[in-house]
Design a protein around this nucleic acid. Structure first.
Ligand SMILES: [Zn+2]
Ligand SMILES: [Zn+2]
Ligand SMILES: [Zn+2]
Ligand SMILES: [Zn+2]
Lengths: 161, 161
DNA sequence: AGCGCGAATGTTATATTATTACATCTCGCT
DNA sequence: AGCGAGATGTAATAATATAACATTCGCGCT
């Protein structure tokens, strides 16, 4: 999560460590139920994304991976791909960043409200996807995946300025 | 414009050179009217994007810039920023690519149908942006820019498979 | 326990995408 | 001509991501 400008951004609402532990648990369960393996590097990557409390860059994960030094890029990029396929995280294209999925029904397409000031993101359901699909159907386009990204300023940051 | 798979993609519909010339003209006019300068590197960049007839990568522009050799990256990245600000091109985040705006009313937010097979893109109006903004308004988020990207297969590519 | 297979990881190198920093030039204005 | 803002040239480097291939791990089977 980045700060585009200087002023304080103390409107974070970080989940408790307990809540994170529960999500790590749940992720393990999800993997087992899907016949996938939640290995240590996948778990560590997911943990770092949860700890970030917002969009985090691949190389920030890489840098924080080991207490003593950075991980190798493929280690983390592989884990990110896996987690994304499991629906545990989303990639935010316009930021080249990743964020933990905020819902319990994984494997969806999500929209995000991205604050350009404090870097926080809020996951929202994509409104009226049917309309996109209707529009696509007119030319026979079959939609596999939709990326919707709304950039702007969250309420807290608007009042800060 | 990339080809993700081997089969022929002969469903292009490239505009005529005349049409491209007209768009270059129009772009010049737009710049003059806005008090901006359509310089040679900006024009050359725009020309290459028009010639691509679809999403093109920054480094493909860089490579094609001069007959004799590549341009320097900042030359092209600056031109791309300018063209994007003028609304003459759009950046497609999920492809790290650029495409000429397909409409006459520049300075809008656009959606794209991106074929994962032939790489063609179709620009569409974002449906129900109001809904996104309504949703954002609930938490006081002010939307500056929305990215909507629908990935999938166009009709031609579906029948090809 | 030992074997064999496919998935996952380790390792090195490199490809791709994008920016910083600073010198120089161009153009319109006085 | 002299000035100043915007645009460009140039070199270096930062940031993001993948390729290729060797090795190890987990797991079912004997
Ligand atoms: Zn989600
Ligand atoms: Zn904010
Ligand atoms: Zn457009
Ligand atoms: Zn296609």
């Amino acid at each position: 999560m980045s700060n585009a400008c200087a002023h304080a951004h103390n409107h974070d609402h970080a989940p408790t460590p307990d809540a994170r532990a529960a999500r790590l648990e749940a992720a393990q369960t999800l993997c087992v139920d899907s016949g996938e393996r939640m290995t240590s590097s996948r778990l560590r990557t997911y943990e770092l994304i949860l700890e970030a409390n917002g969009p985090i860059k691949a190389y920030d994960v890489i840098d924080r991976f080991h207490p003593e030094g950075a991980a190798k890029p493929p280690t983390v990029y592989r884990a990110l791909s896996f987690l994304e396929q499991m629906g545990l995280i989303h990639r935010i294209e316009s930021l080249n960043a990743f964020v933990a999925c905020d819902t319990h029904d994984h494997k969806h397409t999500a929209g995000f409200l991205l604050c350009e000031c404090c870097g926080q993101s809020e996951e929202i359901a994509i409104p009226n996807v049917a309309d996109v699909e209707t529009r696509a159907a007119k030319t026979g386009f079959r939609v596999n995946h939709i990326t919707l990204e709304a950039r702007g300023l969250c309420q807290a940051c608007q009042t800060d300025h």
